[in-house]
């Protein structure tokens, strides 16, 4: 059998990798990929708490489904923004999109 701790540690590791991707990558699309990894880590946590806590109630799975919907919405809007910015400013590097800084 698999103890809950394995899932929790795995999810923490996945979250940290995603966080590193978000903080360190220059490309805006790669940053969005890092966010996807973090959302997946959250989902693993939700589902494993559901399975190890109270499988009779569906709350964990319902939360996970809401996260799916949010992730899909976030990627659609995020990638549309990246494409739009790329079309106007010919760059996908997050640091160079700084018109609003000053």
């Amino acid at each position: 059998m698999i103890p809950l701790s394995w899932y929790l540690i795995l999810s923490a590791a996945l979250f940290s990798i995603g966080l590193f991707g978000v903080l360190a990558r220059r490309n805006a699309i790669a940053i969005l990929m890092g966010i996807e990894l973090m959302l997946n880590a959250v989902n693993i946590n939700l589902v494993s708490f559901w399975r190890y806590g109270s499988p009779a109630e569906m709350s964990g799975q319902v939360f996970a489904i809401i996260v799916f919907a949010v992730a899909a919405a976030e990627v659609a809007v995020g990638l549309a923004l990246v494409i739009s910015v790329y079309r106007r400013r010919k760059t996908v590097v997050a640091n160079e999109i700084d018109m609003m800084k000053w």
Binding site: I9, I17, F20, Y52
Partner: peptide, 29 residues
């Protein structure tokens, strides 16, 4: 710096959940 933040997050999260009583729980039937 980002790598350090990532490692710190991993360490912090692991430390937090490992101090929780239900850490090693087996699957509920």
């Amino acid at each position: 710096l980002a790598a350090l933040v990532g490692l710190a997050t991993f360490g912090g999260l692991t430390f937090l959940v490992s101090s929780w009583t239900g850490f090693g729980a087996a699957a509920a039937p």
